[in-house]
Nucleic acid binder design. Structure first.
Lengths: 338, 338
DNA sequence: TTGAAAGCGCTAACAT
DNA sequence: ATGTTAGCGCTTTCAA
């Protein structure tokens, strides 16, 4: 006689127990390793589980433990296109990491003034912890989360001093890239164009840039720096001015700004790198395939994701975790600065 | 006296029932609207729920109904960078749509030979249905899903004839774009470069291209068509040949191929659109910011996502759903073909 | 080392 | 129209 369960239904704990002539408790213990079970019975149980192709009903487990085995990931929905590869890579590595530890990843979409998805997940208790992929500047997500005692980790800067965070070494990276360029370009010929200074990442970039000059014993003229650029038109004006004062090496805050810069330069007949060198503080595929490919800093989204996920899972398991984790970068030196 | 629940703990059904002096069943019915409750009590209940800030414990609800209120979304992890914006936009609109109907979205990462995340979700029963964002060509995901009787919908073509699918009208779009170009270019001067023909989408593109010629009463010479291009080097060779035979209008299968094409043309001193016109069967930000911006077909990822999600949710709710849903496209006519 | 039984917070069949 | 009660499939005390 076969030990199969009732037709059609997936095997459950009780089926295993019956098949083996032991109690559900024993089986449960054998699986979780929590109580004490003799090695012999444990082996019998594990064999039987394989044979009957049992896998626990996670909803029931969740219910009884009052844990969901889900982590929520807040994905910013605005300004998405440009950063999509970053978020996507990051998300994938989070989900991979979670899966390895038997957690699932639930997506929480967030728009500037719409935290409703986050509220929903909080209210329905469908996650044990949350990763914020890019905190809003007003810290409203963190506030919501702390209010509900929901553990969370942020990627990037957070306004909340208590937040556990993981970030890339933007400042160091920018400093290093700038320093590299200062080796072959006169300080006065190096210009910087940067986007919205409301974003902390842009402030870090600025600081890194300035620091490189300090380290080399010089200072930058404010005339060489254009911050808060919002449109191609503003960028165009900035570039015109930088060229006028004799810049031959342009640093761009991010990939889109850089792409635009390359287009503008090309359109006015400047060739890169012969007439002018260009580099970006943030790499992307655009800059990989650009003509010519552009020197840029590369931050590994995948590592950020997995570091963040393991951190959060550690916290959920009661281990304590470093308050701040900073990951490194890579300098991609390419034709645009040669 | 205040009707607060025991300190600290979130209110639950029973608290509401007690506060109102009715049974849990009544409260449950008032919320779900399933049984019959007098309008008066229903209002009292709903008021009380607001006042006590009750929200149901979804795990318990799940458990009792044997539903998770989750849908799984399979995200392909290979070849990711280029398509990230598409997947991301699509994912966000799925999650938005699900949230509106009180479902959550769990991410399922999939690599070519690693369906372990999908298996996990299936085994743990953590989703009520699944969206496959891009089926593998061997249909292995669909097989797994059907085997477990897990409802699913695919985005794009599926090898499974029974699959409910949502797709964009690639063939029609390509046909229309080609037709548009044939209005101002001699048929013999129009060339096509396409990537991997293993992908169905590329076959649809090819068919649309050919059909436009047929519709206009001409035929394409095979010499004007290069399929299965795998590298920049192959593309370069193809372009050289197309130019040699007198092509002045190049159609590219997708954005990356197109970007490459633009770079190659520029590098050999051709100007777009003066010397040669260029268009792409698939738009992306690259082509938006390119110099010059490139004429391309735009498929709305966001609509694909929401259509797919509502379809799946309808199926889960027992409504029957169209077997095939085809969404439209937009033609972005830009400088590269003017 | 093992088992019996209570309980997690809902839903739904059945009774009133 | 409302209440009573029995599950749902696990984990976990408590007892043996």
């Amino acid at each position: 006689m076969n030990t199969n369960t009732k037709q059609g239904k997936a095997a459950q704990l009780e089926d295993i127990a019956k098949a083996l002539g032991v109690s559900k408790t024993t089986v449960s213990r054998a699986i979780s390793g929590k109580g004490r079970v003799s090695a012999a019975t444990r082996d019998r149980v594990l064999d039987c589980i394989k044979e009957m192709n049992y896998s626990p009903n996670m909803i029931a487990k969740s219910f009884s433990e009052n844990k969901t085995y889900n982590i929520g990931v807040v994905l910013p929905m605005d300004n998405i296109e440009a950063e999509a590869p970053f978020f996507q890579t990051c998300l994938m590595s989070i989900s991979k990491c979670c899966a390895l530890r038997s957690y699932d990843t639930v997506v929480i979409g967030a728009e500037k003034n719409d935290l409703s998805q986050l509220r929903r997940v909080l209210a329905s208790r469908k996650a044990d912890g949350v990763i914020i992929m890019r905190p809003l500047q007003d810290g409203s997500m963190e506030a919501l989360l702390s209010e509900q005692n929901m553990p969370y980790v942020t990627i990037g800067q957070s306004i909340d001093p208590d937040a556990v965070r993981v970030d890339s070494a933007h400042k160091d990276g920018c400093c290093e890239l700038t320093a590299y360029l200062l080796m072959n370009n006169k300080p006065a010929s190096v210009g910087l164009v940067l986007g919205d200074m409301g974003q902390t990442v842009n402030r870090s970039r600025y600081e890194g840039f300035v620091k490189a000059f300090e380290n080399s014993g010089t200072t930058v003229s404010p005339k060489n720096i254009f911050l808060g650029l919002k449109s191609s038109i503003q960028l165009r004006a900035a570039i015109d001015e930088l060229l006028r004062i004799g810049c031959t090496c342009l640093l761009c805050g991010d990939d889109m700004l850089c792409m635009d810069t390359v287009n503008i330069l090309t359109s006015i007949g400047k060739s890169i790198p012969q007439d002018i060198r260009v580099a970006s503080f943030y790499n992307s595929m655009y800059l990989d395939v650009c003509a010519p490919p552009v020197t840029a800093l590369k931050f590994k989204a995948s590592e950020l994701g997995s570091a963040t996920a393991s951190l959060l899972l550690d916290i959920l398991e009661g281990k304590d975790a470093p308050h701040e984790t900073i990951l490194g970068f890579e300098m991609l030196i390419r034709k645009s600065t040669m």
